[in-house]
């Protein structure tokens, strides 16, 4: 229990650091959204008027006070207002979140399914050539950039083959290509690490002993190797969630989907600081929670870690 509380405290600390870093970085940027929007000569606003607007956004007080104010607001669930549109940031995010969640989750599930299927087939295949071919795939796809893949998929499936339409698609149809785009760069490293773990664990003496008991390749993989291989894969999966966030920005932009990624992209180009601050914190939160879950899953998967969690065991010389 102390272990769990410790991890949660660590997670909270990471969030605070992420929040502070984001705040400092966003303030350090030259220019700000208010200036960009209201200094436009066509609006014809006098410097006094602009100063009053700045005051209403709280932009005139010292930085430390702004920081405290924003932090308190975030803690109370008040993320401020978008400088560009004037809508509350919380509403912007609440509207966009479900879309992105659907995209991210389906992408992740697909990535896991593809990675596991590929690794298992490559390992169990009776044909050497198939195994070799499948083993080469992940390293190829690891190096494919998301935006290029998205564009190529649209080009091929929508414009040339006409299988999936990208202009006004149905809710499911519209998901197919974005999910594919998102899943491929995540499934590739997952498959790589799974394959490597299968090979490493397959070379362990205990696997030979299991074979000496009369087990076939399927039994060895499914009942002995798989669970041992899950640990490094899980770590990787946690880290890849960051990829998912970044991937969503690009994917949503390429496919013109509404979502957190789109909001982020717009907020960056318009220097909409409050929105960016909230998005950064949201990403950090997701990242921290996922990795917390991964950490808490380790002892469940590997009994050897349970004793270390309860307090170091005797180390004999």
């Amino acid at each position: 229990m102390r272990y769990v509380l410790g991890r949660v405290a660590q997670a909270a600390l990471v969030l605070l650091i992420a929040f502070t870093a984001a705040f400092v970085l966003l303030q350090a940027m030259p220019g700000d959204a208010i200036m960009i929007k209201f200094q436009n000569p066509e609006l014809g606003l006098s410097p006094e008027q602009i100063a009053r607007i700045r005051e209403s956004y709280g932009a005139d007080v010292p930085l430390v006070a702004q920081y405290g104010h924003t932090l308190l607001g975030f803690l109370g669930g008040d993320f401020g207002y978008s400088v560009v549109s004037g809508t509350p940031v919380s509403r912007l995010i609440a509207d966009a979140l479900p879309n992105t969640l659907v995209l991210a989750l389906s992408g992740f599930v697909l990535a896991v399914v593809v990675a596991v299927a590929l690794a298992v087939t490559a390992t169990l295949s009776r044909f050497a050539w198939l195994g070799t071919a499948l083993r080469a795939l992940p390293s190829l796809f690891v190096s494919v950039p998301v935006f290029w893949l998205g564009i190529m998929l649209v080009q091929l499936f929508s414009f040339q083959l006409g299988l999936v339409s990208v202009i006004n698609p149905g809710p499911i149809e519209g998901l197919i290509l974005p999910v594919l785009t998102l899943a491929v760069p995540i499934s590739a490293p997952l498959a790589q690490i799974l394959l490597r773990s299968f090979d490493e664990i397959g070379a362990q003496p205990f696997v030979a002993v299991v074979r000496a008991r009369g087990a076939g390749a399927g039994w060895v993989l499914g009942r002995n190797v798989l669970r041992n291989a899950l640990l490094p894969t899980l770590t990787m999966a946690g880290l890849l969630f960051g990829e998912l966030i970044g991937g969503a920005v690009v994917t949503e932009t390429v496919f013109g989907r509404a979502g957190i990624g789109r909001i982020t992209e717009q907020a960056v180009s318009q220097q909409d600081t409050p929105v960016l601050q909230a998005v950064v914190l949201l990403s950090a939160l997701v990242f921290v929670v996922i990795n917390l879950v991964v950490d808490l899953l380790y002892p469940v998967l590997d009994p050897r870690l349970r004793s270390t969690v309860r307090g170091r065991k005797a180390v004999s010389a």
Binding site: Q204, F206, N228, P303
Partner: peptide
């Protein structure tokens, strides 16, 4: 030491 599956 290495001949038993550690998670079984």
């Amino acid at each position: 030491v290495t001949s038993l599956n550690p998670v079984k």
